[in-house]
């Protein structure tokens, strides 16, 4: 019966995570709009419900009831499925993220992670790379020059930054001596890796920001050049999926930062889940702050930063970390 209980447990965990994640994504939109407007001395959404709290609901309703347009000449199949790829890949990453201390229930320890893979980090990379397909295919299938250019830019940007993203985490793995995210959190029992690896943290933060195509790296959807980039031609809930994907990725990014550098769910006094939430929220708020402050990079500046600054820096960081570990370890 263990396997049955395991499956039920898994389903419950999946359900809880999904609901929490989707709600978080939806309200993240609200939080972002509200915060952005305050950064710009505006009021932000305040009409739907008290303080505009029902705005995400209204948005969802609107998106659901909007006409689902497919442009003439679009590759229909790919066009329809590309947003799904984006949203799904973002959601799936969360499977390996530990969000709390193991919990004893009826003699079993229930790990507070959907699935503790021993190659969790590689899994994360794998799915974040899959997200590129959604962008590329959506942009290509739309049969629109804006979308196509957005898609191409997206692919180029995400592939470029995946390198520095990977390089920035190598020291973390070297320190934790494991690919499992649970182990990585465990390795930060005494102090978070941000203390040991500030450079890796910065590299990761920047690269991840580029990976999720947020300002100042939102070149694939640069409004004033490409209307809306790869999702120009999307409407209704399909557009909503792209949107959802983006905000889920934000949460995922927050979680990853928390896991890799901020000690995951660990923290004094407060329960682990709360600590985890606080850390995730902190990262997300910083992302919003960045959006409210920085202008968009130019395409060549973006590439310049990725290839000429971040990757060399990542390599140096690995070498230094390796050297230190060798010297220290011996």
């Amino acid at each position: 019966m263990g396997w049955l209980a395991g499956i039920i447990l898994l389903l419950i965990k999946l359900g809880v995570v999904l609901v929490v994640l989707l709600t978080a994504a939806a309200y993240l939109v609200y939080v972002e709009r509200k915060l952005l407007s305050r950064l710009q001395i505006r009021l932000g959404p305040n009409r739907a419900g008290p303080f505009g709290l029902l705005q995400p609901l209204a948005d969802a309703l609107k998106l659901l009831t909007k006409e689902d347009l497919v442009p003439e000449g679009a590759d229909r199949f790919i066009f329809l499925y590309a947003p799904g790829v984006v949203a799904a890949s973002a959601l799936l990453i969360f499977a390996v993220i530990p969000f709390g201390r193991g919990w004893m229930f009826m003699g079993h320890e229930i790990p507070m992670v959907v699935s503790d893979l021993n190659v969790g980090l590689l899994y994360v990379f794998a799915f974040s790379s899959l997200g590129v397909y959604g962008v590329a295919l959506g942009g290509w299938a739309s049969n629109s020059k804006y979308s196509l250019m957005g898609g191409i830019r997206g692919v180029a940007q995400m592939i470029s930054y995946e390198l520095s993203l990977g390089l920035s985490l190598v020291p973390v793995v070297m320190l934790a001596r494991s690919f499992s995210l649970v182990d990585i959190v465990a390795a930060q029992a005494h102090y978070p890796f941000i203390v040991l690896q500030p450079v890796a943290f910065i590299l990761f933060f920047i690269s991840a920001g580029a990976e999720i195509k947020r300002i100042p790296f939102d070149i694939p959807e640069a409004e004033n050049e490409l209307v809306a980039g790869f999702h120009t031609e999307y409407s209704g809930m399909r557009f909503g999926l792209f949107f959802l994907g983006e905000y889920v990725t934000m949460v995922v990014l927050g979680s990853l930062v928390a896991v890799f550098f901020l000690g995951g769910w660990r923290g004094p006094l407060l329960p682990p889940l709360v600590w985890f939430s606080i850390k995730v929220l902190a990262v997300v708020l910083v992302l919003i702050w960045i959006r409210g402050t920085l202008p968009r990079l130019r395409y060549d500046q973006l590439m310049h930063l990725g290839w000429k600054v971040l990757i060399p820096l990542g390599l140096i960081n690995i070498v230094v970390t390796g050297g230190v570990l060798l010297w220290w370890g011996s």
Binding site: R38, R42, T293
Partner: peptide
């Protein structure tokens, strides 16, 4: 400076 500017905007009265 930029981040500071946007940050203090948080505490200003909206002009809306």
């Amino acid at each position: 400076q930029g981040f500071w500017t946007t940050f203090i905007h948080l505490f200003r009265k909206p002009i809306t």
